[in-house]
Design a protein around this nucleic acid. Structure first.
Lengths: 226, 226
DNA sequence: ATTATCTATAGATCTATAGATAATGC
DNA sequence: ATTATCTATAGATCTATAGATAATGC
């Protein structure tokens, strides 16, 4: 029985031994991410990915056991990119002295900015998650982690909240903001009433809404109009 | 040059001449809707659709010029089903004397109920819209129409609104509710903080949020606790 | 000597058509 | 006589592999 290059059924991506190989692997993942966000997963053939990465189909299969392994690897890379940023962003030390409104406003602004500049990532993620929920589990878990950590930050400030059931209100408010962000960033094909609204105005209205609901003070504004 | 059975390039679905044919056409559309909502568009082969409909691939191509024509026809049928219900639901006469809060609460409850019992439709619609925005345009236009008509109903009641810019606030509130509905109904694979929340509690919190934001009175409750 | 890549192709789908057969309605 | 359906299959992809060639690092 010939020795398989694949370490186990759980390890479908070959461990590179040469820098050249690592480079090709990165190019393949880049190409896949681009193509999937442009055309969707099923219109992206392995041959397309290989040729955009500037290598052959054979090279592709040197690195990945099959097309599914590429998807796993791509999701893993997306997750890795997200993890570090996310954890730094919700570090409690970073937010000492900040109010709920300040934290939520920063969450909105950061998510919009990150979503705009990396729209391929979002679209690829959405496509992959809709196609195969299990494969997107690691990324999903990070989304949950972000949610939990944000909720922790807010719960530590529950004294600010006027809403009767602070726990539930915090969860609901976060879900509300997350829903709007997802649709605003990726829901073009689902239509929107707010196409004419700029990001800054969107953030302002979202903050007005969430502050009214939670019964907290609005974020301090550097402008003349408080 | 043989006469084409297709009337023009814009008419890709054959006009049935016999009741038997209409029945088969309906069965094909049913089968397609089911399979697409179960497995997605690309894992649904024409052969799968034909066999679930209990006919052959040949019969499929008697009715549809190609697979794209089926998608168009399916979207057209979904749109037709939606149109009548939607127009009746937002008929101004139906809502005479109702407050903004009552209208929005009914919108939430109706959307959740309809979404639950016809989840296949929603999923198929989401899949089709993400895949080919142009093909979903007719359904999208109906979504916009629903949004406009709802907004009209609310604008006619703008005196109830305490928010400074009633127009913008109405648009924003509708978009907020729509975002949450879409994610709640179809965003399972995208994760949610509110999985444990029942529909009734979801509606209550959403109403609390939107009433606080718009600065309107909450919906009258038949319960002991106003 | 090992690792990485390329070329060429077998095998598995899947779409769409051709041509034969069956059902319908005048 | 026309409409609807079925069977069988050609042609187009697309995935994954086999075997040869090139690059790397000890």
């Amino acid at each position: 029985m010939a020795k398989s290059p694949w370490i186990s059924d759980l390890r479908w991506v070959r461990t590179a031994r040469q820098p050249r190989s690592r480079r090709t692997l990165g190019l393949l993942l880049d190409a896949a991410e681009e193509l999937i966000s442009e055309k969707g997963l099923d219109d992206t053939a392995v041959g397309d990915i290989a040729s955009r990465a500037g290598c052959s189909v054979g090279a592709f299969y040197h690195h990945f056991r099959d097309k599914g392994a590429l998807i796993q690897a791509l999701l893993a890379r997306l997750a890795e990119e997200f993890r570090a940023t996310m954890r730094a962003a919700v570090d409690p030390a970073r937010w000492e002295g900040a109010s709920i409104a300040e934290i939520l406003e920063a969450y909105l602004e950061f998510s919009l900015e990150a979503g705009r500049e990396r729209s391929g990532l979002n679209r690829a993620q959405l496509v992959l998650a809709l196609r195969d929920p299990a494969a997107g589990a690691q990324l999903l878990e990070l989304q949950h982690e972000l949610g939990r950590r944000l909720a922790d930050l807010l719960r530590a400030r529950r004294d600010e909240v006027g809403h009767g059931d602070a726990e539930r209100a915090i969860d609901f408010a976060l879900e509300q903001l997350r829903s709007m962000l997802i649709l605003r960033l990726e829901g073009v094909s689902l239509g929107s009433r707010l196409e004419s609204l700029g990001d800054a105005e969107f953030v302002r209205e979202a903050m007005a809404s969430v502050c009214a609901y939670l019964q907290i003070l609005p974020p301090p504004r550097p402008e003349y109009r408080t």
